[in-house]
Amino acid sequence: PTPPYLKWAESLHSLLDDQDGINLFRAFLKQEECADLLDFWFACSGFRKLEPCDANEEKRLKLAKAIFKKYILDNNGIVSRQIKPATKCFIRDCVMKQQIDPVMFDQAQTEIQSMMEENTYPVFLKSDIYLEYT
């Protein structure tokens, strides 16, 4: 069978599908001071999984606000800098108007994912941290 660390080199998704892969990628991003990219990506997925029902409404609103505040509000943050202004406006409007939709962070997540696929992920595959692991 293919060892997990070789699978991690196939695609970003195969890396993010494996707990050890996530931990190593996170350690690398932390070293590069951009671990927030990965946390934001998972936060978006987690948010989408929260079912919109009466029991969850308060939690979803609180969580949407928390994600917005932590990763998007500060324009100098590593995540915020990688998201298009129109996408940030859209999310801000959703939060302000309390229109909390499961897919409200999807576009921002896609933008961060593309950035990781083009930039941090290929660099990770050439990094000492990955090569030492393999």
């Binding site: 998972f42 936060a43 978006c44 969580l63 932590k70």
Partner: peptide
């Protein structure tokens, strides 16, 4: 009441793969 950070952490963990 959960703090914002706890809520975020719980959300991030919920999206991670559980089974290796």
């Amino acid at each position: 009441i959960d703090s914002e950070d706890d809520l975020l952490q719980e959300c991030i963990s919920s999206a991670m793969p559980k089974i290796k």
